[in-house]
Write a protein that binds this DNA or RNA. Sequence first.
RNA 1: GGCGCCAUGGCCAAGUGGUAAGGCAGAGGACUGCAAAUCCUUUACCCCCAGUUCGAAUCUGGGUGGCGCCUCCA
Length: 465
Amino acid sequence: MKIYNTLTRKKEEFVPIEPGVVKMYVCGPTVYNYIHVGNARPFVVFDTLKRYFQYKGMEVKYVQNFTDIDDKLITQSIEEGVTVKEIAEKYIDEYMTDAKGLNIDEASIIHPKATETMDEIIGFIKDLEDAGYAYAVNGNVYFEVSKVRNYGKLGRKNIEDLVSGARILVNDEKKNPLDFTLWKVKKPGEPAWVSPWGEGRPGWHIECSAMIRSLLGETIDIHAGGSDLEFPHHENEIAQSESLTGKPFANYWMHNAMINTDGIKMSKSKKNFFTVRTVAEEFDLEIVRFFLLSSHYRSPINYSRKIVEQSKAALDRLYKSKYQMQHLMGLELPETDDLAAQVKAEASQFVSRFVDAMEDDMNTADAISVMFEAVKYANTHLSETSSKESVQALYDALMEMGGVLGILYREKENLGLDIQALIDERQAARKNRDFARADEIRDQLKAEGIILEDTPQGVKWRREE
RNA sequence: GGCGCCAUGGCCAAGUGGUAAGGCAGAGGACUGCAAAUCCUUUACCCCCAGUUCGAAUCUGGGUGGCGCCUCCA
């Protein structure tokens, strides 16, 4: 598989450290509020990557942290009038609800929390201090950027440019304006942990380095996150970890592009965000997942209601074909026929092309287009005269592809027996040209929110929206 | 100002040297007691100007426009 590595700005063949095992880390949410669609993108995108690795038979050790101590949590706790811990617990729960709706496979994700990794974080800072990369001033500990060669290698920055940018906050304690905080001294009323430098809490960047070291080791295969984290967050993680171990921190860096609202990056601070929760009030979150995967993860996408509606219509097309094939499988079909061999060959071609797309830096947009081609083929070639073998082959292919992307998992609900009886009665009435009775039944069901459609493939029903 | 990325039909979006995938919307057709839906078919010379090449959306240079980061939004 080819993966675009931000470190080298090239697509590279992915070779895991240990054959058959992928160790990956994704920067998770700061749990001080609901996540928005922009936050959700990396979670969905890299969940899909994980699914694909698993599909290929690889074992994936996948870590995604919760930042549960931070200025924003403190601010939010004051606003809501509860403790920081309660804020964290609340929004972790809310994250889990959204993740479930987005069909993120939480069962195979390890979620460390900063507050539960405190020993490792403090140990990491201590190690940096002992190794001469960190210095303490008045209970604060800073990382000394000038001690690191190649600082800026990920973000393609050089120190002179950054300093001359002069937009960095002046801080008298720092030896160099670029030095960043590893440990913050406690302020009155704030949660704090005991450390060699006094009571305080960890800085912004150290938790990821510490979690990775303790859960995945010194070198991991893939480190992923939003492209906005490239600098300084990921740069600083590299500085922290590589200065300590002298080894590569992550072999592949993957960054998803941003989600925009009217062309501007969706973010809490710009107040142009849509929370996943808000969107869920109107749309099934599977649509959002589909939307997020329908363009390449490294392309910026614009979020709008119109686009979500387009995604809904597109996803519906896939579902209709799925349901139609299920309908056919429920019929008395011959086991096989002359066409079966060809249909099976086509089905495996679709899967093969789907895999090719995924192999190419996870091109989910292209992969989805293969699903639509498979659907068109099924719609065109399958009917009530097809064989079980043919229908099953295309159905399996479609579901296999959908499974990798984490979509197309819903099942059509069963109608109650009494309703099915009404539909049957209406069919009988239509056959006898008793259209008055037929329309009466149709109106009756419509009043119950069930819409009947007489199609060439038989009577179909759907829930009114 | 510095660094990086991007620009494909009404909307969305693949495609990195050989004469433009796919979806939505639109149009036409099929089907149909009606209604609705469904199914099929169908619509582009790829921001502009030079250049390289037998040949470029795809490579190079310039221009225009947009975005991200350099500001603890993560």
